[in-house]
Design a protein around this nucleic acid. Structure first.
Length: 389
DNA sequence: TCTGGGGTCCTAGGACCC
DNA sequence: TCTGGGGTCCTAGGACCC
């Protein structure tokens, strides 16, 4: 019988701040931006802050109104990643198969570990104790015979919670929940549920698979049909399809100036290029994203014969695409860019190095890799190129 | 009080080929 | 001279997650 733990750190970023700063403990901590920041949103609110109604994705300005006495922080991703690494390493003591889902949550496959590590209930207790003792953080856990149910279970008893769904009880467990607890059904789907008078998972359970498919489409309809029965959903299978990377920036005030826009684009390209070289990925498809002052958003993408090799090449491709998409004279609220369909270096290696010899792109690429290495070795050096210097 | 940033997956439609 | 149909690649947009 398969069995899984879903482990989810409580208010992770805010908890790390409270751990690192004694004086923050017991006080409302809001990570995401400082009071007065334009267009920042809450990334994580501590439980003390949630009492005031502050929650993730809320504009900082609104959080300040609700909780003027809160401690506001921009956040320190490097520190959170470090802490996350400690915890994930700890999880390895409890399962031979740990699947990290995001910076603050993971599935632990504990199938067949009972003889070695004890019954699941006790295992979960020890895991919580050890995380607390070694990292000072609390974790909520859900245990079930499939990942989907375990994931939902862990969310029910936060913070510092433990929910155990015994084998055979998955369907009854799901039937006890309101539709708001269905993982994968966001605001738009909740509206559809409400419009049709579907309040509980039991209401969904009463609809045929055919009906669900006719309402929600083949993929999501079948997903819902299975989800409310507590059946394993394919959502968390390890196999990942295509990869992409992107970077974007929302401006404090709409941008109109061509030079300012192009500079921002170049800056984004630089971020992307260095990440691309660092990860040793290749991509032939570039994407540009534009958001105007009225929040309307458009994107364009283009696939080329050859993968992007240099920063200048990336910038040329994106600038060209940008000019074809951008409606001149409209204020730019957000500018983003990305590289899609990432493939490992091997795919293009032959072609790349055959042609990279004497030509300038090859030289440029090696120069960029050198700069990347120097920057990694001496983080303070801040070697930059081109128009940003 | 207007709505971050970095991802994945799905759908629908067009182009093109056989 | 009425508009087949499947497969593949590509684009745009949207929903959702943390």
């Amino acid at each position: 019988m398969p069995y899984f733990i879903h482990a989810d750190l409580d208010a992770f970023y805010a908890s790390v701040e409270q751990l690192d700063h004694r004086e923050y403990r017991g006080r409302p901590v809001i990570v995401g931006g400082l009071p007065g920041d334009r267009r920042s949103v809450v990334s994580t609110a501590s439980y003390e802050a949630r009492v005031f109604g502050v929650h993730s994705a809320m504009p900082i300005a609104e959080a300040v109104r609700l909780c003027p006495g809160g401690i506001y922080l921009r956040g320190n991703m490097a520190r959170y990643r470090e802490k996350s690494g400690e915890i994930m390493a700890l999880f390895d003591n409890f399962s031979p198969q740990v699947q990290q889902l995001s910076i603050d949550e993971a599935f632990l496959d504990i199938t067949g570990t009972e003889g070695l590590l004890g019954p699941p209930d006790r295992l979960a207790d020890r895991l919580k104790e050890q995380v607390q003792k070694e990292t000072g953080l609390t974790v909520s856990v859900g245990l079930a015979s499939n990942k989907y149910v375990a994931k939902i279970a862990s969310g029910l008893s936060k913070p510092d919670g433990k929910s155990i769904i015994p084998p055979g009880a998955e369907e009854a467990f799901m039937l006890s929940l309101p539709v708001s607890k269905i993982w994968g059904a966001g605001p738009k789907t909740q509206e559809v549920f409400a419009a049709r008078g579907l309040k509980s998972c039991a209401d969904i359970h009463g609809l045929s698979e055919k009906t669900l498919v006719s309402i929600f489409g083949a993929s999501f309809g079948v997903f819902l049909y299975r989800a409310v029965r507590g059946e394993a959903a394919a959502a968390f299978d390890e196999e990942r399809g295509s990869h992409s990377m992107s970077a974007e920036r929302t401006f404090d005030f709409e941008l109109y100036d061509a030079f300012a826009i192009e500079t921002a684009l170049f800056d984004i390209c630089q971020t992307l290029m260095w990440r691309l070289l660092d990860q040793k990925w290749h991509s032939r498809t570039v994407m540009v994203k534009i958001r105007y002052g009225d929040f309307s958003t458009e994107s364009g993408r283009e696939t080329f014969e050859t993968p992007v090799r240099t920063l200048n090449e990336l910038y040329d491709r994106l600038l060209n695409l940008f000019h074809r998409k951008y409606r001149k004279g409209r204020g730019l609220r957000l500018l983003g860019a990305g590289l899609m369909n990432l493939e490992t270096k091997k795919v293009y290696q032959g072609e790349l190095f055959d042609r990279a010899g004497p030509d300038s792109a090859g030289r440029e690429q090696r120069l960029e890799e050198t700069i990347l290495k120097i920057n990694k070795k001496f983080p303070g050096a801040a070697l930059k190129r081109g128009r940003l210097v």
